[in-house]
Write a protein that binds this DNA or RNA. Structure first.
Lengths: 193, 193
DNA sequence: CCTCTTTTTTAACTTAAGTGAATGAACGAA
DNA sequence: TTCGTTCATTCACTTAAGTTAAAAAAGAGG
């Protein structure tokens, strides 16, 4: 199970045996049932998550409507979103499926960085890459129609539609569930999908 | 002029005199004329920019149409967007106005970090904040109409509309220039603006 | 198995953005 | 100043998403 995490980290930087050992000793693997809320809006952020198995969803609520902002499946990591107050969560995080997740926290991070200073560079690289990815997704989103966004999702994350309720997908695409139904019907008739 | 940069950095971490001196010695202040292209798509990224005076714009081109992804005015910093190849720019950067800008580059950054290791933590904090801001803007964008996005821009960056051509604003808002005209007219008639 | 709830789809109608074309205004260069 | 280009606005028309309501389908719990 640890190997998933090590593979992820070693995309960026090879790990020494003692570093791997230190990570294992932190005992950060957790299981959660479908529907479990890991983090609520306003909670003090004490973790970041890396998904070994399952699916997390990040969302916030406006006018009692859930607005999904991210899905996070195997081999992906989720950084809780904070707002003006950087210590408190601006979004919820919950489990779309039964999930196995590593849960890190800042104190652990601090200790680890003191012990292995090069982990700071790793964090910087990952953060910069997340930023670059997000900038690029944002640009794509701006310059495409709901239908194009849906097709793009089909292409980049095809299995998500089988794993996640469509109304959550719809809000992730910035549209109403009815519109998503309509788009799917339209494409099916055209024979494009 | 340096003080603008120091104030920016000291939002995150107080600077020692010797650190300030080192920064000054890097001789990173540059002036550019309106229209100057600082970075082209495909160029090797060798800089990040901090605006002392003026306005930079980041954009990319699809079907010979410019799609604006960011405006960067006084006291803001612009990180060039890279794509799959993290060393090459995915977007253009150009000057909307005559501008004074500090231009940093990775070698300088490396040397500086070697000399003053705590600058790495600074970079991490800034990168994490940029990520948080971007996630939050993206979420707002997803869940608002073109009209709401325009009103939001008016509220958050009111002077931008006087400084930047409207068709660039339109593409920044993800709409056509005609639609921006229509929105402005509609709001003016309602007396909302 | 049945019931209740959630999810997905369909329909009719409203609203606003996209598109193509044209006009007028502002700007820059010679 | 004038000419040519770029920019902003307007119009008519098309297209698709939002909205409201309702029905059908799928799931969850007892």
């Amino acid at each position: 199970m640890e190997n998933y995490l090590f593979d992820f980290i070693e995309q960026y930087m090879p790990l020494l045996e003692e570093e791997k050992k230190a990570i294992i000793d932190m005992n950060i693997f957790r299981s959660f049932k479908k529907g479990t809320v890991l983090l609520k809006e306003g909670d003090i952020i004490k973790s970041w998550y890396f998904v070994i198995k399952g699916c997390l969803r990040s969302y916030y609520i406006i006018d009692s409507e859930e607005k999904t902002t991210a899905f996070c499946t195997e081999y992906e990591s989720l950084t809780p979103v904070s707002g003006a107050d950087t210590y408190r969560a601006a979004h919820y995080v919950s489990c779309v499926e039964d999930s196995i997740v590593t849960v890190g926290n800042p104190e652990m991070g601090k200790e680890t960085i003191e012990k292995f200073p090069r982990f700071e560079k790793l964090c910087l690289i990952i953060s910069e890459q997340l930023l670059a990815n997000n900038l690029s997704s944002f640009a794509d989103f701006k310059n495409s129609s709901p239908e194009q966004r849906y097709l793009n999702l089909l292409k980049t994350r095809p299995n998500l539609l089988q794993r996640v309720p469509h109304h959550q997908i719809a809000s992730f695409l910035g549209i109403q569930p009815q519109s998503l139904s309509r788009i799917r019907k339209r494409l099916a008739q055209k024979g494009n999908v």
